[in-house]
Each structure stands twice: as C-alpha cells, then as structure tokens.
Design a protein around this nucleic acid. Structure first.
Length: 437
RNA sequence: GCGAUAUUGGCGAAGUGGUUAACGCACCGGAUUGUGGCUCCGGCACGCGUGGGUUCGAUUCCCACAUGUCGCCCCA
C-alpha cells in the first residue's frame, strides 16, 4: 500500500456519507426551529485564540493541539474545538452590536483536530456539531439549550439518555471551592493515585472524576461545589432545575462533574448514553455549559454565553449500535437496459430525458449482456426496467417492466420523451391494481 | 506521551521455514442467441503491512517502522 491516510484520519465513503448527511440535516432542521443559524469559521486560528481561552496549562494546549508555524512564521493551530473560534468571530464581526437580536444564536458543523493517540470514536480529525448562544444570562436559555440537545438526540429514536447537570458557580464560588477541596485533599495526598497527585497541583477539580477506585473513596466525602455557591450562582442553578422540571425533563445533579476547559462557569451539563457502543456504561455523547466571560477574554464586551458540542463520530457509533433509524436506501426509479452497441445513443437520450423529468435513472456503461444488466437493476433496487434492443429501435417502442410485479408493457418511445411522468404513473396504477387482486 | 495486541485477495478467514498460499462471500464469464432467483461450471493474491536481518531458502524466525484496535493520560 503506497499511500495511506494520515494517522487518525478517516475517509467517509458514500455508504457512510449518507448517514453523515442524515445527522447533519437533522441538526440543521432542529436548530433552525430554535432559530439558530449556521456560522462557518476557519479551520485554523492563531494559536493564542485557543491558548488564551482553554488555559495555558491544560493538556489540550500543552500536548493535544495540532499547531505549526506557517511560511510567514505565524503560529497557527488547527482548531481543537469550536467555541473559541466562534467567540473570536463574534467579537471580530461585532455581533454584539445593538442592532443584533439577543441572544445571538448560532451553530456550526465541521472538522476539529487534536493531536492524540487515536481510539475508537476518537480521531485526530474528528467532527463536531455545536451551538452557541450569546448575550443572555437568563437560566431559561440554559434550559432551552439543553432541551434542544435532547430534542436533537431524540430525533434518532435514542432512548436511555441521561442528562447530568452541575454548576461551577461564578469565579468567586469556584475559587472558594477550589481552596476548600485542596484543603480537604492535602491530608490524603499520599493515598491518592499518582495521576491525582499531579491533578492536585494542576487542576484539583479533576481529582473529582478520577477513575481510580482509591481516589473515588477519598472523593466521596469531599466538599461539594454546591455548598460553596454564591447567592447569585445558587439562584441561577435553582432556576435551571426549576425550569427543567417545568419541561418535565429528567436530570441528575452530579456535583463531581467538571470540565477540561477553563472557560466554563455556572451551568454545565452532559448527555450520556449507556449504549452497547460503549459497553453499556454511561458515556457522554454531548457536553456543554455556560461560559460567561469568554467573550471578554477574547477582547469583546462583557457578554454571557452558553453552548454545547457533540462529536459526530461518537454519535454515529451510538446510532449504529442502537439500530437507530437511519435513512433508507434511495430507490432507483428506472434502469435502462440497452441490448447491443447500436442502442447506446438512444439509451443515453432516454436516460437524460427521464432524469430531466425528475426521475432517478441509471443505465449500463459496459455494453454488457441483458442478464448482467438486469442483475444490476435488481441489485440497485430499480423499480422499473426499460429494455431497448434492435427490434424496439425499429418499431420505436420499448419494453417497460415493473421489477416488483414483473408486469411488462410496451411503451412508445415518443411518449417517454414527451411525458414520461404519465408513462410512469400509468405503470404504477397497474401495480396498485395487481396488488388489489 | 506510555502499555498491550494485531496486520494474508474487494471483504471475511485458514495455513506452512522449502514444489502450484485452503475455504467462504462478493465480483466477472458460461450453461440459458434479448430479462432479475436457484443450481452447476469456469475465472479472480504485482504473492501474505513496509524496510532490514537470520537462513541454502521466509508469508512463516528476529529487529525497526507504519497503520489499526484496546487500555492509561486526556477528553471540547
């Protein structure tokens, strides 16, 4: 094999692309009903856009970014996530202007890049669907965003989804809590796993969701963020819960849920699935949260924001494991069987004529025998086969066969050219009558 | 970045240090001068991921690399 795709990339070939299109179309439809409109930002940004917003010490910045110097010596990064770029665009295009309705609601669909070891559902180039809404601090928007995410996933017939929510509070709440957590953990330092010892220094909150059994025991009695919320943060979170109740959306509060990125505050949420795709364990397929302050970090005015992102590859894994309804094969209306090279021109004209009339039509291009052509027609699930040979050319007619009922009728060539729809409808009528008998 | 494991035709999958690398599916052709299924017959690996090495000889043994998969780290 001379050439192969770069590590961690995937080709999405026709059979797959149909599923992708279905997922993307569904997203567009749902989001549009919530008045979200698409934004397309560059696949690469200046390094600082991400380093500034994600936290300089976060793993994503230190080891997972796909970055390089371009020929003009600019430090460029292939976007590892969608939010930072959208916020940059929001600020750069002054979408916070007074003439623009708030909240400004937008969504994106596209590839993201992460320099990491590939695993199933985790590639170096992967794809995300995400939404962002700016300019409104009202918890109603938090809930609407969650509802939209659930709506979207439900469209695929996914059941057993779990909505987990938490709050990180505002900066003060978070700082206070961090101090309390560290104070609690310090006495246990020697008992913590090596990973968690490092986390204690770098990002203490992450100790909370350690997979290590011993860590989990220690964490069990750790103080909860929920006890360190400022009055405003508490109120915000209470309202979120109240509104979720009002919509009868069930949820679980998980006070140990954290985020890998620094820019989140207040409400954070994850939608999890216990699909077979993940061995039956609940795994996050959609994650989001509020990021008040992020717009300022990128040089814009003080503007609240909230959004979520989900990985298309992971979603597809779940859909396939759950046998979710994916689009059906597109049927072929007509397959034209041409017998003998002398029918080639007429076949081409027929095919084009019917396509222009709005039908999906295929033919043989290999000058194969009728048998082979019928086999193809059958395999392509053709509804009708139009057969054209020497004798038909002479009489200016052709044989029109219904592949479902095997009924055959003779049709005038001229009728096909002038009004194929009528020919098709007549043939369909026969099929219905045959069914009725 | 760390660890484990895998890599044989379009796909799935046997197999051996030494003549022609099973089998199944798919595909193509024929039996059936112009009709879809079934059956039967026939065809279908620049040779076993790439590069080295050991050997009289390697697809089979060793090493390196690449890629896949799984776990760790991390997870938007």
């Amino acid at each position: 094999m001379k050439f192969q795709r770069p590590k961690g990339t995937a080709d999405i070939i026709p059979t797959d692309s149909k599923k992708w299109q279905y997922v993307e179309e569904t997203a567009r439809k749902i989001f549009s009903s919530y008045q979200y409109e698409e934004i397309r930002t560059p696949l690469f940004e200046h390094f600082e856009v991400f380093s500034r917003t994600s936290g300089d010490t976060s793993d994503i910045v230190t080891k997972e970014m796909y970055d390089f110097k371009d020929k003009g010596d600019r430090h460029i990064t292939l976007r590892p996530e969608g939010t930072a770029g959208v916020v940059r665009a929001y600020v750069e295009n002054k979408l916070y202007g007074p003439e623009i309705q708030k909240p400004f609601k937008t969504y994106y669909i596209g590839p993201m890049f992460r320099y990491e070891r590939p695993q199933s559902g985790r590639l170096r180039q992967f794809h995300q669907i995400g939404v962002e809404a700016f300019g409104v601090d009202n918890p109603t928007l938090d809930v609407e965003v969650m509802a939209m995410a659930i709506d979207f996933l439900s469209k695929f017939g996914l059941t057993n989804l779990k909505l987990a929510i938490n709050t990180l509070g505002d900066n003060d709440s978070r700082d206070n809590y961090r101090d309390a957590l560290v104070a609690y953990l310090i006495p246990f330092k020697d008992q913590l796993s090596d990973d968690s010892k490092a986390r204690l220094e770098k990002n203490p909150l992450r100790v909370l969701d350690s997979k290590d059994k011993g860590d989990q025991e220690i964490v069990k009695n750790a103080p909860s963020i929920l006890d360190y919320l400022s009055e405003d943060s508490q109120k915000h979170f209470d309202q979120v819960k109240e509104l979720l109740d009002a919509l009868e959306i069930s949820y679980e509060v998980d006070s140990t849920m954290v985020r890998g990125l620094d820019y989140y505050n207040h409400t954070i949420f994850e939608i999890m699935s216990d699909s077979k795709a993940f061995g039956g364990k609940f795994t996050t397929i959609c994650a989001g949260g509020r990021y008040n302050g992020l717009v300022e970090q990128l040089g814009g005015p003080e503007t609240p924001g909230i959004g979520f992102g989900l990985g298309i590859e992971r979603l597809l894994l779940v859909l396939e494991a759950e046998d979710a309804k994916l689009p059906v094969e597109q049927d072929l209306d007509v397959y034209v069987v041409g017998i003998g090279e002398e029918t080639n021109i007429e076949s081409l004209k027929l095919v084009q004529s019917m396509r222009k009339a709005g039908f999906s039509v295929e033919r043989d291009y290999l000058n194969r025998k009728p048998k082979g052509q019928f086999k193809s027609a059958n395999r392509m699930n053709a509804h009708f086969v139009m057969t054209l040979g020497e004798s038909e050319l002479e009489t200016q007619t052709l044989n029109f066969k219904n592949m479902k009922t095997s009924q055959e009728v003779t049709v005038k060539l001229s009728d096909v050219y002038t009004d194929f729809s009528k020919v098709y409808q007549n043939a369909l009528k026969l099929e219905v009558e045959a069914d009725g008998e």
